[in-house]
Deep mutational scan, measured.
Amino acid sequence: MGKSNSKLKPEVVEELTRKTYFTEKEVQQWYKGFIKDCPSGQLDAAGFQKIYKQFFPFGDPTKFATFVFNVFDENKDGRIEFSEFIQALSVTSRGTLDEKLRWAFKLYDLDNDGYITRNEMLDIVDAIYQMVGNTVELPEEENTPEKRVDRIFAMMDKNADGKLTLQEFQEGSKADPSIVQALSLYDGLV
């Protein structure tokens, strides 16, 4: 993909415009910024974590950033290329609610087996709590990752089998306004 070129080839721009919710001009602008920050044309896990640390200076986002990195890194080569970056950004910032929920499901399904187990969710929720640090005051019933996961599973795990399917996750998330709101945070920002 033209590693350190400051412009993408027209056919690449066209393809990314088809695969995302961005215009050709927006794709070019994002590429310019991506190459400025990642001259090699790729972003590794350490660089990704560094970006998260800028956004969450009062907590430790390392663990959460690693989980997000793994979802962005579609081809699992340990690096995020621009096409992976822009497609994930498109879903998280401008995707439909169902697209965002499928993306979030992939984030929580750490072993990619098609289910979110209690332990997988606990890993992610714990990482989120570490990331936000003491900057967020949580209600008593959610002031630990374990309590939050218990509440989520009580609401979403309809067949009580200890794991969530994509359908259970989507339906449960849509029924909880706070989850829908959290997924909409990026709307309109890009």
Rank of each mutant, 00 (worst) to 15 (best):
G2M: 06
G2S: 03
S4H: 05
S4P: 09
N5I: 15
S6D: 13
K7V: 02
P10Q: 05
P10C: 14
E11Y: 03
V13T: 15
E14R: 06
E14F: 14
L16M: 08
R18Y: 04
K19D: 08
T20K: 12
T20S: 10
E24S: 08
K25Q: 12
K25G: 11
V27C: 15
V27M: 13
Q28L: 13
Q29N: 12
Q29T: 08
I35S: 09
G41D: 03
Q42K: 09
D44N: 04
D44I: 14
G47F: 05
I51P: 03
I51D: 03
F56R: 01
P57T: 02
F58C: 00
G59I: 08
D60S: 01
P61M: 03
P61I: 01
P61G: 11
T62S: 09
T62M: 03
F64M: 01
T66M: 00
F67H: 01
V68L: 15
F69K: 14
D73V: 07
D73N: 13
D77I: 01
D77R: 14
R79H: 10
E81T: 11
F82I: 14
S83R: 03
F85A: 04
I86S: 07
Q87G: 13
Q87C: 00
V91M: 05
V91L: 04
T96V: 03
T96D: 06
L97F: 08
D98W: 11
E99I: 15
L101S: 03
R102W: 10
A104L: 01
A104M: 06
K106P: 03
L107K: 01
Y108E: 12
D109W: 13
L110V: 05
N112C: 07
G114R: 02
I116L: 06
I116F: 06
T117L: 01
D123A: 11
I124D: 03
V125F: 09
V125D: 07
I128W: 00
Y129Q: 15
Q130M: 14
Q130N: 05
M131P: 03
M131I: 09
M131F: 03
T135C: 03
V136E: 10
E137T: 14
E142N: 00
E142V: 11
N143L: 04
N143Q: 11
N143R: 06
E146I: 15
F153S: 05
A154S: 07
M156I: 10
M156T: 10
M156A: 06
D157R: 03
K158S: 00
N159A: 12
A160I: 01
L164R: 06
L166S: 08
Q167H: 03
F169N: 03
E171Q: 02
S173P: 14
S173H: 05
K174T: 13
A175I: 07
P177Q: 04
P177R: 02
G188A: 08
L189F: 11
